[in-house]
Deep mutational scan, measured.
Amino acid sequence: PAHPYDRLKTTSTDPVSDIDVTRREAYLSSEEFKEKFGMTKEAFYKLPKWKQNKFKMAVQLF
């Protein structure tokens, strides 16, 4: 299930529990994912792991 970005980011005051914290981005809706990352999930997962992590750090999901 998708969760709002505000509850997934590492600085959230009301974090979602029971998620894989190493894959926070996977819980974003497709729309919100595209808004935050500027690309689709499919394109994101084709990137090298280090680049994925760099993007995730930039949007507080790492």
Score class of each variant (00 low, 15 high):
Pro1Phe: 09
Pro1Val: 14
Pro1Asp: 12
Ala2His: 15
His3Asp: 05
His3Gly: 04
His3Thr: 06
His3Arg: 06
Pro4Ile: 04
Pro4Leu: 03
Tyr5Gly: 04
Tyr5Val: 06
Tyr5Ala: 02
Asp6Tyr: 00
Arg7Trp: 08
Arg7Val: 11
Leu8Asn: 07
Lys9Pro: 07
Lys9Phe: 12
Thr10Ile: 11
Thr10Leu: 12
Thr10Val: 13
Thr10Glu: 08
Thr11Met: 03
Ser12Gly: 03
Ser12Tyr: 07
Thr13Pro: 06
Thr13Cys: 14
Asp14Phe: 06
Asp14Met: 08
Pro15Met: 04
Pro15Lys: 04
Pro15Ile: 07
Pro15Trp: 00
Val16Arg: 01
Val16Ile: 12
Val16Tyr: 07
Ser17Val: 12
Asp18Trp: 04
Asp18Arg: 01
Asp18Phe: 09
Ile19Ser: 02
Ile19Gln: 01
Ile19Ala: 09
Ile19Gly: 04
Asp20Lys: 03
Asp20Tyr: 01
Asp20Glu: 11
Asp20Leu: 02
Val21Gln: 09
Val21Asn: 05
Val21Ser: 06
Val21Met: 09
Arg23Asp: 05
Arg24Trp: 09
Arg24Glu: 01
Arg24Leu: 12
Glu25Gln: 01
Glu25Ile: 06
Ala26Phe: 12
Ala26Asp: 08
Ala26Asn: 08
Ala26Thr: 05
Tyr27Arg: 01
Tyr27Ala: 02
Leu28Glu: 02
Leu28Thr: 01
Ser29Glu: 03
Ser30Asn: 15
Ser30Arg: 13
Ser30Met: 14
Ser30Val: 14
Ser30Leu: 13
Ser30Gln: 12
Glu31Asp: 10
Glu31Lys: 10
Glu31His: 12
Glu32Ser: 08
Glu32Leu: 02
Glu32Thr: 04
Glu32Arg: 08
Phe33Asn: 00
Phe33Ala: 01
Phe33Ile: 01
Phe33Tyr: 02
Lys34Met: 15
Lys34Tyr: 13
Glu35Ala: 09
Glu35Arg: 08
Lys36His: 13
Phe37Gln: 00
Phe37Tyr: 06
Met39Phe: 08
Met39Asn: 00
Thr40Gly: 07
Lys41Ala: 08
Lys41Asn: 01
Lys41Ile: 11
Glu42Arg: 08
Glu42Asp: 14
Glu42Lys: 10
Glu42Trp: 09
Ala43Glu: 15
Phe44Lys: 00
Phe44Pro: 00
Tyr45Asn: 09
Tyr45Thr: 04
Tyr45Ile: 02
Tyr45Val: 07
Lys46Gly: 14
Lys46Asn: 14
Leu47Lys: 01
Pro48Thr: 05
Pro48Ser: 02
Lys49Gly: 09
Lys49Asp: 04
Lys49Cys: 13
Lys51Pro: 00
Lys51Arg: 13
Lys51Trp: 11
Lys51Ser: 09
Lys51Phe: 09
Gln52His: 00
Gln52Ser: 01
Asn53Trp: 05
Asn53Glu: 07
Lys54Gln: 14
Lys54His: 13
Lys54Trp: 11
Lys56Gln: 02
Lys56Thr: 01
Met57Glu: 09
Ala58Gly: 08
Ala58Arg: 13
Ala58Asn: 11
Ala58Glu: 14
Val59Tyr: 08
Val59Leu: 15
Val59Asp: 11
Val59Trp: 08
Gln60Ser: 08
Leu61Tyr: 03
Phe62Ile: 13
Phe62Ser: 14
Phe62His: 15
Phe62Thr: 14
Phe62Asp: 14
